[in-house]
Design a protein around this nucleic acid. Structure first.
Lengths: 245, 245
DNA sequence: TCAAAAGTGTTTCTCGTACACCCATGT
DNA sequence: ACATGGGTGTACGAGAAACACTTTTGA
């Protein structure tokens, strides 16, 4: 195809106004037995002082040499920037696009939402720790009012997580390297937001063990009462990603 | 918030180049016993002469008076334009966002993919009928090479459909007003791309009937052999939509 | 010794799967 | 009469759910 054609096309396309495109992140972790989300306190209007999902603009690139980044790359970059951690292998999946006019009062912004899971061992290192930080974890059971349409996005992300809990290796992302049956069960309970029968969950656990997904790990976890056996995830996958780019 | 602030923000945001945003449609129907997709033959480069998903730019609106359209509105508008039919109540769900740099060789385009279902009674009215048309139905079992990353999008849409088959009223969208057990089964089979045991499917059907989802309809379907009972979907829902806007 | 959590077992019900079989009809 | 597809019944197994129970520890 000719450069002329490309130029003509671009001119035509530019007649239509373009939206800004951002990625928003719903970062979950397990803290204090609760499923928690990372939120940022907004320092500027609109919604000044309210809490919002972390996120930022997708880098598009304006030259032939700079093609810009993919949506998932943008999400991973934002995740690294917001948490201050190197998280190349974090679990990340796209939730969907949110683009209602008026969702941002300033201008038309279409946001691609991603859900990420942060291992609980890393979670305390962001927010809550440094007092100067405007980022902190919020338990799903006690969320503040959210800016923009972020409550909708968070809700969709939670549904996404729930839907994939049993068909994906999600739960193992929210548990220490070695974990007990009860610890994994508490992750399931936090994601599903309902109690699970300990005995029945044990059988589910057994099946995972029989399938080779889980194997025993050395040592015991000292609990308030009876010490519990330890297991670890034996999956070769380092954390899957989703359909889009 | 002040107009000054908005203006300052917009100026800042405009420093970054913006992508174009489109919606792409994966329109399925049931024709000749096969699941089929609506494709458009490209008249211009790039990918001239190849087949692609229908779609178009999201109307963003550039003034305060014109807020533009939502993503779903854009998808419905394109659906109506491409099919030439009034389809306000068609089943439509978002699949996800596709935004890899280079997916369109001309410029950075982020596309929000939607899946739609078109009743088989309406399907023959577009494509194939008028010889001047560049749109036609393609069976999923014999697809042509697709332009851009549309093969990926189509694949994701098919997965989406499969995943929601049993948890949504999808199948009833692809069947006549009254239908037989075998007709519904063939829809399931087309979507799942696998054979289903007729007897077992009948039991699934029975459950739907017991739950009040399906009710008997008057008359009989004359088949090559034994006439079959007719049923109809008794759902009050006119066709659900999904998470985003 | 008592509470609490780890860990085991049992029973019931539902559902998916496989498969054998009867029934009605056009050719 | 017979092939074809509509329609029915049975038998097995996996797994969800409810729940009673034993074991091991710290306090």
């Amino acid at each position: 195809m000719s450069d002329d054609f490309i130029q003509a096309y671009r001119t035509r396309a530019h007649r239509y106004p373009k939206p800004s495109v951002t990625v928003d992140l719903v970062v979950f972790t397990m803290l204090e037995g609760d499923l928690q989300v990372l939120l940022i306190e907004r320092a500027e209007p609109p919604f000044q002082g309210q809490w919002a999902l972390p996120g930022g603009f997708v880098r598009v690139g304006d030259s032939f040499d700079d093609p810009g980044e993919s949506l998932e790359q943008a999400a991973r970059r934002e995740l690294a920037e917001e948490t201050g951690l190197a998280l190349e292998d974090a679990w990340l999946e796209q939730v969907g696009a949110f683009g209602d006019p008026g969702r941002d009062p300033r201008m038309r912004i279409i946001s691609i939402a991603y859900t990420a899971l942060l291992r609980p061992s890393l979670a305390p290192r962001i927010g809550a720790g440094s007092d100067a930080s405007d980022a902190r974890w919020w338990p799903m059971t006690a969320l503040p009012a959210l800016a923009f349409d972020h409550a909708d996005i968070l809700h969709a992300a939670h549904l996404h997580l729930r839907a994939r809990l049993y068909s994906s290796a999600i739960a193992f992302e929210l548990v220490p390297e070695s974990f007990t049956v009860a610890e994994l069960r508490r992750v399931y309970q936090a994601i599903l937001a309902e109690e699970l029968d300990a005995g029945n969950f044990r059988r589910h656990f057994r099946r995972l063990q029989a399938d080779g997904v889980l194997v025993e790990a050395p040592g015991r976890r000292l609990t308030p009462t009876k010490p519990a056996k330890l297991f670890r995830f034996s999956g070769t996958s380092g954390g899957g990603t989703s359909k889009t780019g």
